[in-house]
Simulated scan of single mutants.
Amino acid sequence: MTLHSPSRAEAPAWQDVSAAHQPVQYGRIAAWAVVLLFLANFLWICAINANFRWPVIREFFFHPDIMRGLGFSLILTVVGMVLGTVLGLLLAVARLSNDGLAKSAAGAFIWFFRGTPLLVQLIFWFNLSTLFPHISLAIPFGPALISWETNALITPMTAAILGLALNEAAYMAEIIRGGLLSVDRGQNETASAFGMTRGRALWRIIIPQAMRSIVPPTGNELISMVKATSLVSVIAMSDLLYAAQSIYNRTFEVVPLLLVAVFWYLIITTVLNIGQGFIERYYAKSDRRLTTPQTEADL
């Protein structure tokens, strides 16, 4: 006896799903309508509220001092992130090495810079001259070979870069270490079987695969770095927030100038969020390309 599935014409009417569709979710539509209504009402209240001083915001939004401070904030973000990522990679490799000294030194660095607030670190670097009036290159317990005045070396810019980069390195080290650990250990064994050195295998095989796990949290760190640059205003660094503060100290328009800074931070972080989304989707496609052939073979 041969079994066959009934055709659409033979199937009972209650089994015909050709015209099936997802039911309208009236509850979700109502919830969206309520949320949008409250949001529109809030925006309208803000728009007509004279206390926001919208004309002042428009006046100073592209003010030269604001633009200069925005430029310094972006420079600090890029330099701090690049240096922090490079140093973080070295620290992550040291943490994963079999050398006890390198592993301990990297662990102590990460412990200290993750365990103290960034604001305290910035103030410490800026006031380093109170502890060490001179910075010297010397033989241990011997004479100094060369010496510099600390105040000449540690300017507000160098203090800001040191504070941001070293603090970021501690966090990036753990992000990179987690990404490297996410790669199958068999990759190292395979590379060793082909005669590759540990360093070559790391750069050519392990790190490219680990990037799928490293990129998303690194994007979050970059966005956090943009906001962290506002802390350098405490050491008289002319960043975006410091520029806004300088203007409202003269004009006494505190809230409008703070809103100018807030809007610029939101613009920057929004652009970075969009960029992060594109990068994450790119690596998600890479994952699907790697897993699809295996899935089809299993089927």
Score class of each variant (00 low, 15 high):
residue 179 G to Y: 08
residue 184 D to H: 13
residue 117 P to E: 00
residue 23 P to R: 15
residue 230 S to W: 04
residue 186 G to C: 07
residue 297 A to T: 08
residue 202 L to Y: 00
residue 194 F to P: 06
residue 59 E to Y: 15
residue 231 L to I: 13
residue 216 P to R: 09
residue 24 V to T: 10
residue 205 I to G: 06
residue 209 Q to D: 01
residue 225 M to F: 10
residue 283 Y to T: 10
residue 43 L to C: 13
residue 55 P to S: 01
residue 298 D to E: 14
residue 163 G to Y: 03
residue 180 L to R: 06
residue 18 S to H: 04
residue 250 R to V: 14
residue 129 S to P: 02
residue 53 R to E: 12
residue 86 V to G: 03
residue 57 I to Q: 02
residue 246 S to Y: 14
residue 83 L to K: 03
residue 67 M to T: 09
residue 65 D to C: 04
residue 44 W to I: 05
residue 96 L to N: 11
residue 261 A to V: 09
residue 166 L to Y: 03
residue 216 P to C: 11
residue 111 W to Q: 12
residue 60 F to H: 08
residue 128 L to V: 07
residue 289 R to N: 05
residue 140 P to E: 08
residue 107 G to F: 12
residue 13 A to K: 10
residue 52 F to M: 04
residue 293 P to E: 04
residue 64 P to R: 11
residue 222 L to D: 01
residue 111 W to I: 06
residue 286 S to M: 14
residue 10 E to R: 00
residue 84 G to N: 10
residue 34 V to W: 07
residue 53 R to N: 10
residue 91 L to S: 00
residue 278 F to K: 04
residue 76 L to I: 02
residue 21 H to T: 10
residue 277 G to Q: 14
residue 221 E to I: 00
residue 168 E to G: 13
residue 229 T to K: 05
residue 59 E to H: 15
residue 160 A to T: 11
residue 244 A to W: 06
residue 13 A to C: 00
residue 105 A to I: 15
residue 64 P to V: 11
residue 151 N to A: 14
residue 277 G to C: 06
residue 180 L to E: 06
residue 113 F to V: 10
residue 164 L to W: 11
residue 125 W to C: 01
residue 180 L to D: 07
residue 249 N to F: 11
residue 14 W to N: 05
residue 113 F to E: 07
residue 146 I to S: 09
residue 286 S to K: 15
residue 245 Q to Y: 08
residue 101 L to M: 13
residue 241 L to S: 03
residue 90 L to C: 11
residue 227 K to Q: 09
residue 69 G to A: 08
residue 166 L to A: 11
residue 32 W to N: 08
residue 200 R to C: 05
residue 297 A to P: 00
residue 229 T to M: 08
residue 192 S to W: 07
residue 99 D to R: 15
residue 56 V to G: 01
residue 266 L to M: 11
residue 16 D to G: 05
residue 190 T to G: 14
residue 254 V to C: 03
residue 185 R to S: 08
residue 191 A to P: 02
residue 109 F to I: 10
residue 55 P to C: 04
residue 35 V to D: 04
residue 196 M to K: 09
residue 25 Q to E: 12
residue 123 I to H: 03
residue 95 R to N: 03
residue 202 L to K: 10
residue 244 A to P: 11
residue 119 L to H: 05
residue 7 S to Y: 01
residue 256 P to E: 03
residue 35 V to L: 15
residue 151 N to I: 13
residue 145 L to Q: 09
residue 167 N to E: 10
residue 245 Q to M: 11
residue 264 W to H: 06
residue 123 I to A: 13
residue 97 S to W: 05
residue 184 D to C: 06
residue 56 V to Y: 02
residue 187 Q to I: 07
residue 43 L to K: 06
residue 276 Q to W: 00
residue 216 P to F: 02
residue 142 G to P: 00
residue 206 I to F: 09
residue 210 A to G: 12
residue 102 A to Y: 09
residue 13 A to S: 13
residue 20 A to I: 08
residue 163 G to R: 02
residue 210 A to N: 07
residue 287 D to F: 09
residue 242 Y to F: 14
residue 264 W to Y: 02
residue 108 A to Q: 07
residue 256 P to F: 08
residue 216 P to K: 12
residue 212 R to G: 00
residue 253 E to D: 15
residue 6 P to N: 13
residue 237 M to W: 07
residue 239 D to Y: 04
residue 14 W to L: 12
residue 124 F to M: 08
residue 210 A to I: 06
residue 143 P to H: 12
residue 194 F to V: 07
residue 23 P to V: 13
